[in-house]
Design a protein around this nucleic acid. Structure first.
Ligand SMILES: [Mn+2]
Ligand SMILES: [Mn+2]
Ligand SMILES: [Mn+2]
Ligand SMILES: [Mn+2]
Lengths: 222, 222
DNA sequence: TAATAAAGTTAGATTAGTCTAACAAATATA
DNA sequence: TATATTTGTTAGACTAATCTAACTTTATTA
């Protein structure tokens, strides 16, 4: 049985491993920063996780999830994203409110609960932020990797997921009437500062910053 | 902010106070037994709860919730029973499975979540065991207090709530096709051992023990 | 009422998770 | 390569929640 805290460390390591998939290891400081604890604390926990065979790591070396560690991390992520979907779909939470509560709900221990919840939600593939929801067996749809900022003038796309999940960004998206699935056409790329002129669905054209365009994952349309 | 553990103590004290309403105080050992900890542990926690103005108590004296303590205890109980209802109504849990998971869910911190959940469930008055669900303001429907064992031959009633919520009893009730709201007619009271002959809805008459009859709260019918 | 039993408290220890401050190793840089 | 910087570890302390064992107070009963 894993503690609440151990679960958070495993999920953090998993998320960090997604951040650059070619080198899925993490460092102690990186991990500590991600979790909002001091490096000394992370080192201690690492020893415990290693003892339990959830990570491989040696002193001053990089941290890597074992298969068991990864499996557990994915289970937490699955719960997190299913709960976010529940809050969003069934309880009318907005997409900037779901994360905080799901951080708590993801630790509820009950295999039956997770699977029944998934069924109740009709086996959703993606959470409200467009992130893929792992299946009970650990399978997970591929993650969209193309950013809006990578498109050229004239190209069309659909919003796949948000890279930045901060409240500020999510609320800005709402204001712009952008949500997962929204169609966007790139009208012009401004070389000077990387900003874009875009058309959101059939709205009036408007300009967005490079920072904005680098925070949205999209799927290209023909 | 209350810790997970403090919340459990407050809910325990509240439940104990329901157990005899004329004298709503509890003792240290009673409380420890209820929570499955040692008396020494309960004493320590009591000091902390007193420090936080959640209980009144002095050394070797009885424990009583303050208004704040009571308010907090009721909030936990509200969450517990709403979650039980959710699990039962929406996720097809059986009534002997809901309690364990609700014990965890009741500690999720989010005012919005509780209220939205209540709305989603259509403002239920009672949980799957027939226990009243406190409203957001702390109001609570009256608790049924009459036991099946208090009826005489010829009287009719409806099952209001279960007094015993053990898996063994709940599963036995299922087998007998008894649930909250089921109509029962007392056909005969056996003076020898307090057992009853009863008719459940329109089923064949059958006999139940005194222990059984003392575990069901009912509302009398004319 | 005096002895016994029950109820409740205290002291001291343990475990999980965290911190600060000092130190050590690895990496980058001049 | 020598030094400086970054990264990571250790030692020692703290808090919350728990325990056991010994002790004290209150209640029961002979
Ligand atoms: Mn989230
Ligand atoms: Mn999400
Ligand atoms: Mn319950
Ligand atoms: Mn209940």
């Amino acid at each position: 049985m894993l503690s609440y805290t151990e679960e958070n460390y495993l999920k953090a390591l998993l998320k960090l491993s997604f951040q650059n998939e070619e080198r899925p290891e993490a460092g102690t400081n990186e991990m500590a920063a991600y979790l909002g604890v001091k490096p000394a604390t992370a080192t201690d926990m690492l020893k415990k996780l290693k003892e339990k065979n959830l990570v491989t790591y040696k002193k001053y070396g990089k941290i890597l999830l074992t298969d068991i560690g990864r499996k557990n991390g994915i289970a937490i992520l699955r719960k997190h994203r299913l709960w976010e979907t529940f809050l969003y779909e069934k309880l009318d939470f907005s997409w900037d409110e779901v994360h905080e509560v799901a951080e708590q709900l993801e630790h509820i221990q009950s295999a039956k609960l997770v699977d029944k919840l998934e069924e109740f939600l009709n086996f959703p593939e993606f959470d409200p932020h467009g992130d893929p929801i792992p299946k009970a067996n650990g399978d997970m749809p591929a993650i969209a990797k193309t950013l809006l900022s990578e498109l050229n003038a004239g190209q069309n796309c659909k919003v796949a997921a948000v890279k930045d999940t901060s409240t500020l960004f999510l609320q800005y998206l709402e204001k712009l009437k952008i949500t997962i699935g929204t169609r966007i056409k790139v009208l012009e790329v401004i070389a000077f500062d990387g900003s874009l002129n875009i058309q959101i669905e059939n709205e009036e054209p408007r300009s967005v910053s490079m920072k904005f365009a680098e925070s949205l994952f999209i799927n290209q349309l023909p």
